[in-house]
Computed example of a mutant assay.
Amino acid sequence: MRVLMVGGGRPGLELTRRLAADGHAVRFVTRNEAFVPEIEAAGGEAYIGDPDRIGSLRYALDNVTILLWLLGRAPDGDLHGSRLTMMMERTIDTTVRGVIYEGTEAGAAEVVRMAGYNEIPYAILDVARDDPEAWADAILEQIDGVLAAPRG
């Protein structure tokens, strides 16, 4: 399985380590090239892009099974609105089989709408990042649930 992680920050490194240890590929989006060595040390593939510029993520979805949109700490706005919608639109006719979202209520509603439209299973994360291990556990559980869900 290949996971595309958009957001996640430092707690995302714990998730990357765990996914990589289980033999999964993690493409971790970052705007900051200085973060690349940490992503690679955790076993991930760093992808330079900006979720505020969806065009910069154009090829990030290549061969991805699960999209993790983990921008719960980002302020309300376009990342949970128009940018999220554009990214969800780009999952049509791709290998993406599930979406996990961390963010706002409005963003969660948009994921529900777009996932229904695209017939892609989804999950809404509601676990705080205060404990990176519990946060990673919750996401791993949601990945399993999304992959087991019937599509359509």
Rank of each mutant, 00 (worst) to 15 (best):
residue 96 V to Y: 00
residue 63 N to K: 08
residue 20 A to S: 15
residue 31 R to M: 02
residue 55 G to W: 10
residue 146 V to P: 05
residue 43 G to C: 11
residue 23 G to S: 05
residue 134 A to M: 08
residue 129 R to Q: 13
residue 77 G to K: 13
residue 50 D to H: 09
residue 104 T to C: 03
residue 74 A to H: 11
residue 21 A to S: 13
residue 113 R to V: 09
residue 125 L to K: 03
residue 25 A to F: 05
residue 58 R to I: 06
residue 130 D to N: 13
residue 119 E to A: 14
residue 16 T to P: 10
residue 128 A to Y: 06
residue 108 A to G: 15
residue 4 L to S: 10
residue 36 V to K: 02
residue 147 L to R: 05
residue 47 Y to E: 08
residue 61 L to G: 09
residue 31 R to P: 11
residue 111 V to I: 05
residue 59 Y to K: 10
residue 114 M to D: 04
residue 130 D to R: 12
residue 46 A to N: 10
residue 51 P to N: 04
residue 70 L to N: 11
residue 82 S to D: 12
residue 135 W to N: 03
residue 17 R to Y: 02
residue 37 P to N: 04
residue 150 P to L: 08
residue 96 V to K: 00
residue 19 L to W: 02
residue 33 E to S: 14
residue 50 D to P: 12
residue 38 E to S: 13
residue 47 Y to S: 07
residue 111 V to D: 00
residue 48 I to L: 15
residue 133 E to N: 10
residue 127 V to F: 02
residue 41 A to G: 10
residue 90 R to V: 06
residue 133 E to Y: 07
residue 121 P to M: 06
residue 84 L to K: 10
residue 51 P to M: 03
residue 88 M to R: 07
residue 137 D to S: 06
residue 64 V to C: 07
residue 150 P to S: 08
residue 130 D to E: 13
residue 87 M to Q: 14
residue 86 M to W: 11
residue 118 N to R: 15
residue 13 L to Q: 04
residue 3 V to L: 12
residue 2 R to P: 14
residue 87 M to I: 14
residue 34 A to K: 14
residue 51 P to H: 08
residue 134 A to N: 04
residue 6 V to A: 05
residue 64 V to G: 01
residue 123 A to Q: 13
residue 34 A to E: 13
residue 138 A to K: 08
residue 82 S to P: 12
residue 60 A to D: 00
residue 56 S to I: 07
residue 42 A to D: 10
residue 85 T to R: 15
residue 142 Q to G: 04
residue 53 R to T: 11
residue 115 A to N: 08
residue 80 H to K: 09
residue 94 T to L: 05
residue 17 R to G: 05
residue 96 V to P: 08
residue 113 R to G: 05
residue 150 P to D: 07
residue 66 I to H: 01
residue 1 M to D: 09
residue 121 P to F: 06
residue 36 V to P: 08
residue 95 T to M: 11
residue 55 G to M: 08
residue 33 E to M: 07
residue 130 D to K: 11
residue 122 Y to C: 12
residue 23 G to A: 04
residue 76 D to E: 15
residue 152 G to F: 10
residue 70 L to D: 08
residue 101 Y to I: 09
residue 74 A to W: 15
residue 61 L to P: 14
residue 148 A to T: 07
residue 15 L to D: 03
residue 20 A to D: 06
residue 136 A to H: 03
residue 135 W to E: 01
residue 117 Y to S: 12
residue 27 R to Y: 02
residue 125 L to Y: 03
residue 91 T to G: 10
residue 49 G to Q: 07
residue 62 D to L: 14
residue 43 G to S: 09
residue 146 V to M: 00
residue 109 A to H: 01
residue 23 G to E: 02
residue 117 Y to F: 13
residue 97 R to C: 02
residue 70 L to A: 15
residue 13 L to R: 06
residue 15 L to G: 04
residue 84 L to V: 13
residue 64 V to T: 13
residue 66 I to D: 01
residue 143 I to C: 04
residue 56 S to H: 06
residue 101 Y to G: 02
residue 7 G to Y: 04
residue 3 V to R: 04
residue 82 S to Y: 09
